[in-house]
């Protein structure tokens, strides 16, 4: 496979994952603003910061409001992580690697782009937001379904999956990072309804609020939530799950190409680190520090993968 094609697949799925995550984050923020109108501005701000686009936003706007943030995250092409920008980049990459995709996957990505382009042609009002977000979710589910249902399990699939999980790990880590203070054990001592809302927001932004209730009979505590998001291998958006998936797909590539690269070592190391930790040691070591390191290592892994498989010349 061409290095460029591997890179196109990787980035196609990173962008798909990113725009879906942006939509999910917006959904969580929207609920939060609805339930706590008094402090809406700072909530919208933390949504923008979590999306990793704070600088770009502040270059453009002086304040945070639902209308501005919604537009920034959904429609603004100046924001490379906006839903529309991500969808466009995903589709551009899909065109680039079209010969590596099944018709079903290509059509799903193309349809995703056409549908969202029409949906986001005009500003979305708060009244229309839930329906718009539902459609965005549905569209990305269709792409994922086409991928799982029709693609050969070979290197093409591996690069698509690796892109997905590198991006997803980054996203989950950033959510934890921005809200880490509400997850500290000291915070649960407060036990106010305020924290409950914050926790709910965190869980919602990784679509895990219902999963959490299914799996944890125990009460909602900061420790339990942090543990869930970082270590639970059943949760498809936890850090441990994402790293496990990336490592697995890298291992398939190692077998198929019969070559072990530096990225394989990096991925194994990242997995080992997570395995040796538990939530208490994380809190002892510092949640914020641990997450910052994770984000750095995960990014380094992504960069190493690009290099080892010659995405660019």
């Amino acid at each position: 496979m061409l290095g460029k094609t591997a890179g196109g697949l990787y980035w196609m799925f990173r962008f798909l994952e990113r725009s879906e995550n942006t939509a999910r984050l917006l959904e969580a923020g929207f609920r939060m603003a609805l339930t706590r109108s008094s402090d809406a501005e700072s909530e919208w701000k933390s949504v923008v910061i979590t999306s990793g686009t704070g600088l770009g936003y502040e270059n453009k706007y002086d304040s945070y409001s639902d209308t501005l943030v919604m537009d920034w995250l959904l429609r603004d092409t100046d924001n490379p992580s906006s839903v529309i920008a991500g969808t466009k980049s995903a589709r551009d990459n899909a065109r680039l690697v079209r010969t590596a995709l099944t018709t079903e996957v290509w059509e799903a990505v193309n349809d995703n782009w056409m549908t969202l382009r029409d949906l986001l042609a005009k500003p979305v009002t708060t009244v229309d937001l839930p329906a718009a977000l539902a459609l965005i979710r549905k569209q990305s589910a269709l792409v994922r379904g086409a991928l799982h249902g029709t693609m050969l399990r070979n290197d093409i699939y591996d690069f698509a999956r690796i892109g997905t999980f590198i991006e997803r790990a980054d996203n989950t880590a950033r959510i934890i990072d921005v809200k880490y203070y509400t997850l500290l054990p000291s915070a649960s001592a407060v036990g106010s309804s305020l924290d409950n809302v914050q926790w709910e927001m965190i869980l919602r932004s990784v679509s895990a609020h219902r999963c959490f209730r299914w799996l944890d009979e125990q009460d909602m505590t900061a420790t339990a939530i942090a543990d869930f998001l970082i270590f639970d291998k059943r949760l498809p958006r936890s850090l441990a799950f994402c790293v496990k998936q990336t490592t697995e797909n890298l291992r398939y590539l190692e077998q198929e190409y019969q070559t072990r690269h530096p990225c394989h070592d990096l991925a194994d190391k990242l997995g080992r680190q997570l395995k040796t930790l538990d939530i208490n040691t994380v809190f002892d070591h510092g949640l914020h520090e641990m997450i910052t390191e994770f984000i750095r290592d995960n990014n380094a892994l992504g960069t190493q993968i690009e290099k080892d498989f010659r995405f660019i010349g």
């Binding site: 496979m1 061409l2 290095g3 079209r98 070559t259």
Partner: peptide
């Protein structure tokens, strides 16, 4: 056939070669 762009190609040992994930 492979679909290549100029930056995927270079001269290697007197031949034209494309950059793949395996070299």
């Amino acid at each position: 056939a492979e679909l290549v762009e100029g930056h995927d190609l270079r001269v290697v040992d007197g031949r034209i070669a494309m950059r793949t994930t395996k070299g």
